[in-house]
Nucleic acid binder design. Structure first.
Lengths: 224, 224, 224, 224
DNA sequence: CATGAATGAGTGTTCATTCAT
DNA sequence: GATGAATGAACACTCATTCAT
């Protein structure tokens, strides 16, 4: 599975409908090529000529549609985040939370974790690009925080508060502490899995995730 | 607070003693300037001419001391990680763990978290550079994993296993799950604090960290 | 007489028809300038910036057409040798030999010598460049030997063997000894003429060449 | 046999006696290294730092003794030619001519050719350097012509005229035509031997040279 | 006198951007 | 609108030459 092509990536479906964003076929070709080249080399080491070649257009054409190289990056990433990655993340969270209001929290957290894991695996290269370039392009940083981080956190906070009201969850800790902690536990586990191991991606790690959820719910201390 | 200059950064103290690494004053100047420029622009977008200007030397001088631009990066980062960042992290962990064997775990975890927080705050820009460039330079990746990540994790695992034997900590979860989870909770909290807020760095957040530790030890679930 | 510009040089007529070699005007300009600069300074001391200036193009343009400086040299010299210098030499020899089968050898040798002299005079600077750079570029060396030296020698051997069969020429010496010797006599005479004297090129030296041919045919020894 | 080191080369013996030329040990080291580097890379592609390294001195020292890189070249080549190569060539010719006044010309020419061949073989790289750089440095050109070419030719002319007076050699051709022709025959034979073949240097080619001398003396034409 | 670190102009080469066609 | 040749400033890197020690 090639996670470098917008057309093959789950995340890119939003862009496949050009009318959505008033993008012509040609512009879409360019952004698709840009995604591939930027993710492989990084923004700075990528060249517009390679993007042009991969897009099957001339270099001149690129600059007819996008004023600068930076514009290509932002024109590609910002809508991707705003229209696809953000909504997709938020909606899937919302649905899982709403649909499963009566499921044990443990089950819901597992679903969320597995879904996040799939997302991270499928979009590894893209996420790496986004996080790297966010350092140098504040526009990007703001979109990520505003459209993905903040909104996702909101949904998780909703979940936690829901369960706090139900009495399933401690009420003496602010919801955001619980949310960020859970997120941190899961993400660090996933990253270490991706970075440190060569285990094939398919291997089922549901058991390991369940251990983390158990830890989150019941704590590390010996039960009194 | 300028966290871009080696001379102002705690982490760089190891390098400030040139004899340690056989670095001349001039070489040190260059690496100091390189840190500033690489940190600001990233490796690829940084130019040797700007490094030269900031170091107050000619461009030729840079290449008398370092064969390529990439060599500058690695000559700066690898010793920094290997000789300073790594040992510093590992030793402070080791000491805190050994010295406080009889302190409640909660206290030890607080000390560790606060110390990590200080480290992260003081070396923010440097850490960002290291993690970004680790993507493109496997040498760097290996040093980080080998000299910092792996060794630090080992110390924390020692701590957890010590407390498991004492019966303070559950024994039905592998130590590494506990370690990575705690690490994830704390780091994501700190990162969100750094990225999302404008609160001045000085503000005491001991209370918040204690909440996270409470969560880690006692879990999110309502006590039965 | 400017023997440094392709456009003024007989040898370059083949290149002046760009279609022959798929060379655009601009590429031809660059190669023309390259010939001038390489000839004047030698390959190593010539700079691409001077070639650009003389070609009336920007330095970037040069590298759009030729990947490296060495490529410029070879793109200029190899076709010149292969398509122009080589065929021209070989064909004119062949024609002189075939057309004048019944002329006395003395007359044929004179024609050949005069033609070689004209060639050498017209292409002095170019020949000097080729022979100099052949030391450092084996590709060039091979082309010269294969396309000019070997093929020209073959024609002369044909002539000699033809005359040996007719009984005009001694048969107790191998043809190649006769050929290389004649060639050596003539070339050294011409080089010394070019290098050592200030006589204008136009001066008729037919008498002197005839003496050399006489020597070649009849030997230096007093007739018995 | 390393023909790149002055100390191993017949030609360099003249320079081994520093007092001859007021050269200190250090200067001699530099020139020795310069010879090696210049012959390998050519003047332009050679670097002063490599010369310094091979000479075992610092780069600064080089420029204390020789104002510019070009000065090194000329300081090395000009005395080499003037004091060693020239005299050696001329003297050996003179001796062979004077000592063997009564030997058949054929024998004398053979001795001369063999001696020239040895010289050329022993000093191949040096000769290539000299001829190449003579193009760009008129000082060099003048020394070669004045100290070697002209003086050597004079000796050969003396030989020829001696034999003309004895009635061994035709008197209807100017001596210089005979000399240059003989020289051309022999040199082109030797060059083609060096350039075109891989036969080991040691192989005896006395027979082939004798054929050339036979040709020179008796001519190519069938004897009437 | 010797050193070698420092220099800075210059090298071949790249690349984002422009613009005539 | 699309092209791709042309640009020229910038790039990483080199090297003959200088000069403080």
């Amino acid at each position: 599975m090639d996670d470098r092509s917008l057309s093959d990536q789950p995340i890119s479906t939003g862009l496949q409908e050009p009318s959505d964003l008033q993008l012509t076929d040609k512009q879409w070709n360019i952004l698709d090529a840009a995604l591939a080249v930027f993710t492989e080399k990084g923004f700075s080491a990528a060249t517009t000529s390679e993007i042009a070649r991969q897009a099957g257009v001339s270099e001149g054409t690129i600059f007819r549609h996008f004023k600068t190289k930076k514009d290509i990056l932002l024109a590609m990433l910002v809508p991707l985040i705003r229209n696809t990655m953000g909504p997709k993340s938020v909606n899937s969270l919302t649905q899982m939370i709403v649909k499963n209001e009566n499921l044990p929290l443990r089950e819901v957290l597992l679903m969320i974790a597995l879904e996040r894991q799939e997302f991270l695996t499928d979009n590894q290269a893209l996420l790496r690009l986004i996080l790297t370039e966010a350092q140098y392009h504040p526009e990007l940083r703001e979109v990520i925080i505003g459209e993905v981080a903040y909104k996702s956190q909101e949904q998780l906070i909703r979940l936690i508060e829901q369960r706090q009201q139900k009495g399933e969850i401690r009420q003496d800790l602010p919801a955001w502490v619980l949310v960020r902690s859970f997120f941190g536990m899961v993400v660090v586990y996933m990253l270490s899995r991706v970075m440190l191991t060569k285990r094939e991606a398919g291997k089922d790690n549901r058991e390991e995730i369940l251990k983390i959820i158990d830890l989150f719910l019941n704590g590390a201390a010996m039960e009194k």
